[in-house]
Design a protein around this nucleic acid. Structure first.
Lengths: 339, 339
DNA sequence: TGATGGAATGTAAGCGATTACATAATTAGA
DNA sequence: TCTAATTATGTAATCGCTTACATTCCATCA
């Protein structure tokens, strides 16, 4: 690690400025000189220091990525998308996993700012907690371009790539209605999260527009966990006026439903129709015909990264950029069996 | 971003050295002075530059993480483990996703070296390709501590946290034998990957030690994909002397098997026993009783990161450190039904 | 009261690159 | 052959910190 640009300069018998020119393909360098320099670089196994370069150029070519749960493939795919575009544009990625802990999120932001990253891509923890105002304040005062991914931050308008949860939920429920269902239950997410609220809104909207009365008994408040969904589903199955379809507000919760179904020999979609928000790839691979509403994860990552690059290149523009992606409904068999 | 340590110094009426002392809690600083400095920092919303600090300290407190497939939860969990420990020790993570492309892997290594990271955690692409010698050379000449995670690099001894694939496979197959199975098939991974070869070896060892002849017809060469496993499983089901159990060499391939099973109304484990290498959490959540051999992913990430920190703290020690983790067999119901 | 030594702060030289500016070498044009 | 333009290279300041060393301040003690 000891070898520096000066060592190369000495070895090649030139000045460090010349070596720098070779390194950056800038300015004038005689071919012969370039050869000498390249030779020295190779012989000494020299790798320039991005740190020093960053300091003098005031440019790190690094962006920060903040996700709440790295081991969830949903975020894994977003990162995959980000990383693809970042690669193409020679950006490095500093990753921060926050475990849905807003304190860690705050810490991550501080840390990233210290690293002098050029921009941040962040999938905000989906909670309106006590810290959220501090959180907001921090983001706004970061002085660094931020692009949010899937998850509006309350009361604020930031750049971002968002999923239209209302429309997604609406589409899902409408599909069920079109198939003839009228008794449609919903299992919501944590209601202090915006996506959960919006999905519920989409559910209600679809019912209303199709003149189906909204029954409070059909609205079940979940918390995004499969355990809770499992409990809820068992209850649903015991109802005397049992729903014929369930709209499930998250992928993990779908799993809980399925478990309850299989324990009670409920066949999908013969005995019960189900549509979930955000796919569980595995289920389709093993041949289960579960329909999903999908936020296009990899795509979202790509778009967000492109948006960020765009912002970096036009730093004078101050208007906030927003893209709303419509989640896509992937139907798998459910329609075949309708009454 | 314009505000520097000198601005703070000026604002607080001290020298930059004093500000630095406050920042790092080093040397002597009068309480009164400290207050002034902290006040200035707060008022000017100052964040020190990690870049400049790294340059002068020759220490970045950053480590590089290289994974082949970020959207696979297997790696997501490893990263989660890494990130947990890294957090505790104030290390930053630069993430490189390589898409199983050894060229990208090489590029990532170069990039990380430029960033002057302190160490690298790498889950090598599981292929012995044409580039592997260059790859090896690069790793060895990096001059940076490397800890491998799950995947020996051919012919080399590096620091690393490994899974004992032979033992894992052996345990799995032995379990099947103990349950009374004698006709046990295996679906292997890509044979140019070391884990695949070792798992096959474990399979053979178990049969041999229990005096069950190894039949070539029961060895099926897969490629880690669920599609291929699906095809293979269909063929297995059509065999006249059909196996009663299958040992499947990867988690994705288990999914292909299950699909084929369900299409043919094969019940697990009544009609066919199956044990897979590396879990698919989702299957257990939905109540499917599939047994798995698990490399403890999160744990591996943690251990690897701890090992790296250990190495960084004892840079004089030159012996290579190696930990072999025994994968754990998680039985789910399969035993209940044996003949 | 002056010597002594710890506490508090400042000065300035790096860290390893980039780059504005100066200068030297080469080429072309008249 | 001389001048002007181009090309090629070097010098040194700079980026924002840390830190060795120097200096000043102040309390304590003989």
């Amino acid at each position: 690690m000891a070898v520096t640009i000066d060592d190369i300069a000495k070895a090649a018998g030139v000045s460090s400025a010349t070596v720098s020119r070779v390194l950056n393909n800038s300015g004038y360098v005689k071919d012969e000189t370039r050869e000498k320099v390249l030779k020295a670089i190779k012989e000494l196994n020299y790798t320039p220091s991005a740190i020093a370069r960053s300091l003098s150029k005031k440019k790190t070519n690094t962006i920060g990525v903040v996700v709440p749960e790295i081991n969830n493939p949903f975020f894994g795919e977003i990162i995959k998308g980000i990383s693809e575009v970042a690669d193409e544009h020679n950006f490095n990625l500093i990753l921060c996993n926050t475990d849905e802990d807003i304190k860690k999120e705050l810490r991550a932001l501080k840390l990233l700012k210290e690293q002098r990253i050029e921009g941040i891509l962040i999938t905000p923890t989906s909670t309106d907690s006590d810290y959220s105002s501090e959180y907001l304040w921090t983001i706004e005062n970061l002085g660094i371009p931020v692009v949010l991914i899937d998850g509006h931050v309350k009361y604020s308008n930031f750049n971002g790539v968002f999923v239209d949860h209302i429309k997604g939920a609406y589409d899902a429920v409408k599909t069920l209605i079109d198939e003839g269902h009228e008794k449609i239950a919903i299992i919501t997410g944590r209601m202090n999260s915006r996506p959960a609220r919006e999905r519920l809104a989409g559910y209600k909207k679809a019912l209303k527009l199709h003149n189906i009365p909204i029954k409070e008994e059909y609205i079940f408040y979940g918390d995004y966990t499969h355990e809770k969904a499992y409990e809820i589903t068992k209850k649903i199955l015991e109802m005397k006026d049992r729903p014929t379809a369930i709209f499930v507000s998250s992928n993990m919760m779908v799993l809980g439903c399925i478990k309850a179904f299989s324990e009670n020999n409920i066949e999908i979609p013969k005995d019960m129709a189900i549509i979930g928000f955000d796919k569980v790839e595995v289920l389709n691979i093993i041949g289960m015909n579960i329909s999903f509403i999908n936020g296009p994860t990899i795509e979202m990552g790509k778009i967000a990264m492109k948006m960020l690059i765009d912002i970096l290149n036009n730093s004078q523009a101050t208007d906030t950029k927003t893209i709303n992606l419509s989640p896509q409904l992937v139907l798998k068999g459910s329609e075949k069996y309708v009454r």
